[in-house]
């Protein structure tokens, strides 16, 4: 699968004329004296989807938590041009004690909409991810893919200007992965938000992102367009995209 050439993306276009929606400069973060992120910088423009790729444990989730403010950086600067952020968690993170409707209503709570409008927004949102019939189900009654889609719906119910995905397809079967990727592309068209998708799944970053950056050992080792990845001379991205043992990654670790 990974050896096939990557088609140039057919994603909605965006322009770099405006201000970047997300701007990250020189970000550093340590846990217990071990530096996980060693100075990361990038920008994401409205309508653009940036993929952050890299091996497990390289700090991708940490990066998203820094952007959403769940963690404080040790150094560096994060500038966001909007307050409206949607985050799709790696494990869905739906509140198990609430129904699908109540989970979504929680995200809308700050808007203080009248009940009718709130219900309408929730219904529209669920229809978009194909879960209108499950509005009064509990998260534990849904399959893994359905939970994932519900957490999508929760992330976008506020019409965010920034949408972040943490490994949206990891652990799903290939067919469900494609379904989720299609939803992501569909949302890019509809929302025109700035997006970041964190993943190590080949199909996900090559299909949904305009641009990708590769992290290794806390630094950016490659940046470029997904369809250029395999033609690159950068040994890191060649190794990562071809999933081979030979290369600079994990050197000395295995």
């Amino acid at each position: 699968m990974t050896s096939q050439p990557i088609p140039p993306s057919s994603l909605p276009s965006f322009s770099k004329a405006s201000e970047p929606m997300i701007k990250v400069e020189g970000l550093r973060k340590s846990f217990n004296g071990r530096e996980v992120l060693k100075g990361i910088s990038f920008e994401v423009f409205p309508g653009e989807m940036l993929a952050i790729i890299g091996p497990s444990g390289c700090g991708k989730s940490t990066l998203l938590k820094l952007i959403t403010g769940l963690l404080e950086p040790d150094a560096g600067k994060i500038t966001l041009n909007s307050e409206q952020i949607g985050l799709v968690f790696q494990g869905s993170a739906l509140l198990n004690s609430l129904t699908v409707r109540e989970n979504l209503a929680l995200a809308l709570r700050e808007r203080k909409l009248p009940k009718r409008e709130q219900d309408k927004a929730i219904m529209e949102d669920l229809t978009l991810v194909g879960l209108a019939d499950y509005i009064d189900s509990f998260p534990t009654q849904l399959s893994g893919g359905q939970q994932k889609r519900t957490s999508f719906a929760r992330a976008i119910v506020n019409d965010p200007q920034i949408i972040l995905y943490d490994e949206p397809t990891t652990g799903l079967d290939p067919v469900m992965s494609t379904v989720i990727e299609d939803y992501m592309i569909e949302l890019e068209k509809q929302l025109h938000a700035a997006g970041i998708v964190v993943t190590h799944q080949f199909s996900t970053w090559t299909r949904t992102a305009h641009r990708a950056i590769l992290l290794n050992q806390g630094v950016v080792v490659w940046e470029g367009k997904p369809h250029e990845a395999l033609n690159s001379t950068n040994p890191y991205i060649i190794q990562f995209a071809k999933a081979t043992r030979e290369g600079p990654m994990l050197a000395g670790k295995v």
Partner: peptide, 16 residues
């Protein structure tokens, strides 16, 4: 359990 499954983070992201 809510913390481990990131439900608490989800609340914080929604500013709850």
């Amino acid at each position: 359990t809510m913390n481990v499954s990131e439900q608490i983070d989800a609340l914080k992201v929604m500013r709850i």
